[in-house]
């Protein structure tokens, strides 16, 4: 007997139903994605390439230091040199929009999962599913709902990239020293306040690692997104396959690598205390604390009894 489980039909029917029931929802969504994309593309695409490169180099200097500044300038000049600048701007815009949306969704979800075991247990298999299903599979329904162009690429990238953001946020918040959270509770702090003043600051390294992962996964979708008509470096890669154009493929591919390194190093440096900006900030903070301490020491406190000294405790 020939038994076949008609999963395909069910899912197709499901998406048909979604299209009918929520069609009103997808048109504004498409406009939103396109609007965001155009805005980012305008920011990076309007000024001459060299101006953008100079600005990126300055940003790199502030974030990580002069070595990274020189490296990023050279990398971007390479992209201009192989005539992939416009494609790179398009890809970068797509990645930034999708990653921004994914992070905006992932962090709150991660916080929710960290605070509620049931949510955590429900989200876990869903995230596993999203992460392991081949990325190409998202494309047809995205195409059906959002039509060809940037919008389906954004949604497919979003779905593909969201998982590590949620996971690392949850992990970070759950990893915050339980006693410190208890301290917040014991002094009567509201849970929102504990989240803002204790959990989020202490979970920040893990959350930033999640942000980094989301951006890197978004970038890895650049080529796949090209298949649903998203502009950018992916277009040339796809074209090089059909035309067996080795040179074009590598030029576009290497440009992706440059973007990847740039984005990775930029996001990895957040909160790590590297670069000029962190140095300035540290110096300013230390100065303020020293001033404050000097003010404290100068004032005489009207506390009775001899002054106790913490001496002998080791510093």
């Amino acid at each position: 007997m020939d038994i076949r489980i008609p999963v395909g039909t069910w899912i197709a029917d499901f998406f048909d139903w979604v299209e009918v029931a929520f069609g009103w929802f997808f048109e504004p969504l498409r406009s939103l994605f396109l609007g965001l994309y155009d805005a980012v593309a305008w920011v990076f695409g309007t000024p001459p390439a060299l101006v953008v490169i100079a600005l990126v180099a300055v940003g790199a200097l502030l974030a990580r230091g002069w070595r990274f500044a020189i490296g990023s300038a050279l990398g971007l000049l390479f992209i201009v040199g192989v005539d992939q600048w416009d494609n790179a701007v398009a890809s970068l815009s797509l990645v930034l929009v999708a990653a921004f949306l994914a992070i905006a969704a992932a962090v709150p979800l991660g916080i929710w999962a960290a605070r509620n075991d049931r949510v955590s247990k429900t989200l876990k298999p869903i995230l596993d599913f999203l992460q392991t299903l081949p990325a190409f599979v998202y494309l047809p329904p995205a195409l059906a709902l959002l039509r060809i162009g940037v919008a389906p690429a954004v949604i497919a990238t979003f779905i593909f990239a969201i998982a590590p953001g949620v996971r690392l946020t949850e992990l970070g918040i759950r990893g915050v020293d339980k006693e410190v959270v208890e301290a917040g509770q014991a002094f009567g702090a509201h849970p929102r306040r504990i989240l803002r003043q204790i959990q989020l600051p202490l979970a920040m390294p893990s959350i930033m690692a999640g942000v980094n992962q989301v951006i890197m996964l978004s970038l890895s979708m650049v080529v796949i997104a090209a298949m649903v008509g998203a502009p950018g470096l992916g277009q040339d890669v796809v074209q090089s396959i059909s035309a067996l154009n080795v040179g074009l493929g590598f030029e576009a591919g290497l440009s992706v690598v440059v973007l990847a390194i740039l984005l990775d190093r930029f996001t990895a440096s957040f909160g790590k205390g590297m670069g000029l900006y962190s140095t300035w900030r540290r110096r300013r903070l230390a100065q303020r604390e020293a001033d404050e301490q000097a003010r404290f020491d100068a004032e005489i406190l009207e506390v009775g009894g001899p002054r106790r000294s913490p001496g002998g405790l080791g510093g």
């Binding site: 006693e179 410190v180 301290a183 014991a186 600051p201």
Partner: peptide, 13 residues
């Protein structure tokens, strides 16, 4: 009612 913790539980930041 306030509390003192075994591993101090200070806010490190």
């Amino acid at each position: 009612i306030s509390m003192v913790f075994q591993h101090f539980a200070l806010l490190p930041h």
